[in-house]
Amino acid sequence: MRLRSLALIFYFILLMLPIYWLLLMSLQTTDQILGGFKFFPEQPTLANFARILTDYSWYSGYLNSLSYVALNTIISLSVALPAAYAFSRYRFIGDKHMFFWLLSNRMAPPAVFLLPFFNLYSTIGLFDTPIAVALAHCLFNVPLAVWILEGFMSSVPREIDEMAYIDGYSFPHFFVRIFMPLIRSGIGVTAFFCFMFSWVELLLARTLTSVNAKPIVVTMTRTVSAAGMDWGLLAAAGVLTIVPGAIVIWFVRNYIAKGFALGRV
């Protein structure tokens, strides 16, 4: 038992160490980082964070990212809710095939869609807008949302639906007033997962934007390739991208496994 706890603590230390190191780097200037090796910051400075939060070319990246992530979450949830209800309550022609087709899109390599997306969104004039990225991320987020929501909805007994219909509720009324409050934790978890997968994605976001809608993850990679690394600044930008996820994670901690298993745990 003793040994087991020690091993566990050791694993958690290993897990946190790289993140701690990023945090440490972000609190130092590049000169300090290159100047000497230390485990604790001697003169911690918030200069890197201050620079990101005041320089438009940096903080606009965060705003762009947040705007397409929010758009994507709204689109994904609003189309996935009715569909998940249909899959959890009814059998219909081609339901299994439809469900599999959706899953296959969650598993599709984004790299395959790079070039056609680029052409498609250039043609319809959406290239370099948050809408383009939000729509492109629907490719994997809508199927994911349907899967997770279907799992949550199937655990709600069907008698509730029948009772509501007997009481004379119309479908939209029942769905919004009675059913959605019942699965609100499921909706929360789904929103969280849409948020997260859109937030961490780089490849499509990078291809579909150039200047105006450049997301933060891309701003970071372009700094990496510039001559003369500013490690402190890069680390600070990294720390700031972890913050939103770290805040929301607390609220959904008990449902994370269910979300990752596509609603199947």
């Binding site: 897990l15 993140i19 997260m196 937030w199 961490v200 994605e201 780089l202 991208t241 770290a246």
Partner: peptide, 9 residues
């Protein structure tokens, strides 16, 4: 926590 860090980060 590691699952929620953007992949490029």
């Amino acid at each position: 926590l590691p699952l929620l860090i953007p992949w490029n980060v």
